[in-house]
Amino acid sequence: MFIGEKIRLTAMRAEDLPEYRKWNSEAGFGRNYNSSPIREIPEKQAEEWLHENSDRDFRFAIRPLENENFMGVYAIEDIAWSHRVGWLSIALGSDYQGSGCGTEAMKLLMNYAWNELNLHRLQLTVFEYNKPAIAIYEKLGFQKEGVFREFLQRDGKRFDMYLYGKLASEPSDF
């Protein structure tokens, strides 16, 4: 369930945190990952995040099959169990973007959501300027369902944030 052709999903580890903290201070990563200002996450805050334990959140590290390198974090979070709905959170390190590993990790995560957690709906948000991510989501069958107009301001310009969703009953090309 957690092994693909090139990557595997594992638990997050304490040794992953320095890389994750570094990524969050990089503009290219942080500006695609969330709407917060770019900053390095304090070590204590990162450790607390790692050790959060909730039945509403399932977080995974992405690693290549052949070693323990930390490539990114994929998660199903804030699950509303009574409605069987979860939010996807996705963060792939810049060295691994464009390699197909993000798409493969999404497929593994969706398989887990549908077939292990028995979720009915997955949803996510993405900023309008993140064209590569939008292409992946649409390729995987996510549908654009809404627009948060001028949600975010970066470098003096306003940008929309899109809401995408996918139902378990909708076909997938994988």
Rank of each mutant, 00 (worst) to 15 (best):
H120G: 08
K166Y: 02
R158M: 15
A135C: 08
N130K: 06
R154T: 15
F2C: 05
M106Q: 07
P64W: 00
P64R: 02
G165F: 12
E26H: 04
M1F: 00
D160Q: 09
R63A: 04
Y74I: 15
F159Y: 15
N118Q: 04
S172L: 01
A80Q: 13
T103A: 02
M106D: 01
T10E: 15
W81G: 04
N111S: 02
F148A: 13
A105K: 01
D78G: 01
R158G: 09
S54P: 10
G102A: 09
I90K: 07
V147G: 12
W49E: 13
K157D: 14
H51C: 10
D57Y: 05
D16R: 03
H83I: 06
Y112N: 03
E116G: 01
I76Y: 11
R31P: 11
F127P: 09
R21Q: 13
A11P: 11
A91N: 14
N69I: 13
Q153P: 01
S54A: 08
P64N: 01
L167I: 02
L122Y: 03
L163Y: 13
A11E: 14
E66N: 08
M1W: 02
N67A: 07
N111Q: 00
R56M: 03
F142I: 06
L50T: 07
S54H: 12
F2L: 07
E15D: 11
E170C: 07
I76R: 09
W23G: 09
Y74V: 15
S25A: 10
I7Y: 02
F174Y: 08
M161F: 11
Y137K: 05
G141Y: 00
L124F: 03
A80K: 08
S36L: 09
P64I: 01
N34C: 14
K157F: 11
P42E: 06
E128Q: 11
Y162V: 10
V126D: 05
S94W: 02
R149T: 14
M1Q: 11
L124N: 01
K166Q: 03
M161C: 15
I3R: 02
M1E: 05
Y164A: 04
R13A: 08
E47K: 04
L152A: 13
L92H: 08
K6W: 12
N34K: 14
S36H: 03
Y164E: 00
E43I: 06
R13V: 09
G93H: 08
A14S: 02
K107I: 10
D173K: 06
C101Y: 01
A75I: 07
Y129E: 11
L65Q: 04
A75L: 07
H120I: 09
D160A: 12
Y96E: 06
D160C: 12
S35H: 10
R154E: 15
W114N: 00
G30R: 11
H51A: 13
E48N: 10
S89K: 07
V85H: 10
E150Q: 15
Y137S: 01
G156I: 15
L88A: 04
L108G: 11
R63S: 02
V73C: 12
R56C: 08
Q143C: 04
R59K: 07
Y112A: 07
A105C: 02
E138D: 06
W23F: 08
L65Y: 09
M110C: 07
K166H: 03
